[in-house]
Computed example of a mutant assay.
Amino acid sequence: MSLAKVTLTLWEKLDLLPAVGSIVVAVFFAILTGIRRTERQAASLLLHAGYALFRQATKRLSPRQMQYILPSSDQIYERYKKKTGQKPQTIQVGDGGLGHWHGDPNADNVIVWFHGGGFGLPAHSGYWKFYAQLVRDLEISGKSVAVFGITYTLAPVATYPTQLRQAVNSVRYILSQPNRDPSSVFLGGDSAGGNLVGGVLSHMAHTHPEIKPLPVEGQLGGAVMIAPWTLMDTEFPEMEVYHGGDIITTAVAGPWATAYIGGRKRDYYTDLSTAPKEWFSRFPVKSILITGGSNEIMLPIIKDFTAKLKEGYENAELFIGRRECHVAPFSNLELGDPTKTEQGKRIEAYLAENMV
């Protein structure tokens, strides 16, 4: 099941203490120097310090160490539901993947969401807060909607294509429900989850040789890709990068990509940025919304991917949230800032425009 976790060596355990110490120092320094901030940095001191915490943690700790420290995605879901007085509703979608419901499973529209975290980090509580916010506000606008949040087996416990297979299984499960028209099903994902959105659409259009086909009559209602990680290079492209306004650094590319690929050969399912324009033309979805933050280090990659996507798939939009970091709609909520992000607003409007 998706809650499988790694065990650490003695050295990895001993390394946790100095790593945590470096994180504390980074946050303290950010507070001291963050009273006055530029447009390239977070809008509030709370977020500025929180981003520093995320940067140092993801830079200093390996995916294995972070999995050891953090509760699993499934445990986070259980705790969130208990805290909010709701009954958990979890479905096994196959091959170890789990789907967690937020909202009524019989709603007119379903969003299947794949969380980010470099394929190696669990879905924190910010995800469930965002899902709740999304369902509530869409219902206010007259839309009946539920979110089916997918938790997949993390790398390096499992490697590609396990996560893609679990993602495909989750969509297969939703589409197999009685009276569920594809036009009422939406895909969503952020960072690594955005990669899985692209992977699922790719599989639906071009069957992956190791995954059962997923035919669909008609088109899905839409897809949202927040800061999609569509290039598994272990080093960022040669470009000028400023880390101070984001939650990740270029240091994550190597360990996270290596853990996910696991020695396998990269392809268009893992690296959608490398696919030819013809690859996108058969994507069975009515439209795709891609978002990013103006302060995130992956922005050049996101823009490049969007340009390539539009060469073969015309109904795609790119929206950039001013002064926002990588996956800001979730990161900010996890840090205690309930202010709706510009990306979050656009995503909500996009879904309201396209839902039945």
Results as ranks from 00 to 15, higher is better:
residue 3 L to G: 02
residue 6 V to I: 04
residue 14 L to W: 12
residue 15 D to E: 12
residue 16 L to K: 10
residue 23 I to S: 14
residue 28 F to Q: 13
residue 29 F to S: 10
residue 31 I to Q: 01
residue 37 R to Q: 10
residue 38 T to Q: 09
residue 39 E to W: 07
residue 46 L to T: 13
residue 46 L to A: 05
residue 48 H to L: 04
residue 49 A to N: 10
residue 50 G to N: 09
residue 56 Q to Y: 04
residue 57 A to V: 11
residue 57 A to W: 10
residue 62 S to L: 08
residue 63 P to V: 06
residue 64 R to W: 04
residue 67 Q to W: 00
residue 71 P to N: 04
residue 76 I to N: 13
residue 81 K to N: 03
residue 84 T to L: 07
residue 85 G to A: 05
residue 86 Q to M: 12
residue 90 T to N: 05
residue 92 Q to W: 06
residue 95 D to Q: 14
residue 95 D to T: 11
residue 96 G to T: 04
residue 97 G to C: 07
residue 99 G to T: 06
residue 100 H to I: 02
residue 101 W to T: 00
residue 102 H to L: 15
residue 103 G to F: 04
residue 107 A to Q: 03
residue 109 N to S: 15
residue 110 V to I: 15
residue 111 I to F: 06
residue 115 H to V: 09
residue 116 G to P: 07
residue 117 G to L: 10
residue 119 F to C: 09
residue 119 F to H: 14
residue 120 G to A: 14
residue 120 G to M: 02
residue 127 Y to R: 00
residue 129 K to T: 11
residue 133 Q to L: 12
residue 135 V to C: 13
residue 137 D to T: 12
residue 138 L to W: 08
residue 138 L to F: 06
residue 141 S to K: 15
residue 144 S to D: 12
residue 145 V to G: 00
residue 149 G to L: 00
residue 152 Y to F: 13
residue 152 Y to Q: 11
residue 155 A to W: 04
residue 155 A to N: 11
residue 156 P to V: 07
residue 156 P to L: 07
residue 156 P to T: 09
residue 158 A to W: 03
residue 166 Q to A: 09
residue 169 N to H: 10
residue 176 S to A: 15
residue 179 N to L: 06
residue 185 V to L: 04
residue 190 D to I: 01
residue 191 S to W: 00
residue 191 S to R: 01
residue 193 G to M: 06
residue 196 L to K: 01
residue 199 G to S: 02
residue 200 V to L: 05
residue 200 V to R: 07
residue 204 M to A: 05
residue 204 M to D: 02
residue 205 A to P: 07
residue 206 H to W: 14
residue 206 H to I: 06
residue 207 T to M: 03
residue 210 E to P: 00
residue 213 P to R: 07
residue 214 L to M: 10
residue 216 V to P: 02
residue 218 G to A: 07
residue 225 M to I: 08
residue 226 I to K: 02
residue 227 A to N: 13
residue 227 A to E: 10
residue 240 E to H: 12
residue 242 Y to A: 11
residue 243 H to E: 13
residue 243 H to L: 07
residue 249 T to D: 06
residue 251 A to K: 11
residue 260 Y to N: 08
residue 262 G to L: 05
residue 268 Y to V: 02
residue 268 Y to H: 11
residue 269 Y to T: 08
residue 273 S to C: 08
residue 278 E to A: 13
residue 279 W to A: 00
residue 286 K to S: 14
residue 287 S to F: 01
residue 289 L to T: 05
residue 290 I to V: 15
residue 291 T to I: 08
residue 292 G to L: 07
residue 292 G to D: 14
residue 293 G to S: 11
residue 296 E to N: 10
residue 296 E to C: 09
residue 309 L to N: 07
residue 310 K to Y: 02
residue 316 A to Q: 05
residue 316 A to L: 04
residue 318 L to N: 06
residue 319 F to R: 12
residue 324 E to R: 08
residue 325 C to Q: 12
residue 325 C to D: 06
residue 325 C to R: 03
residue 326 H to D: 10
residue 329 P to K: 00
residue 332 N to Y: 14
residue 332 N to M: 01
residue 341 T to D: 02
residue 346 R to T: 09
residue 347 I to T: 01
residue 349 A to N: 08
residue 355 M to Q: 13
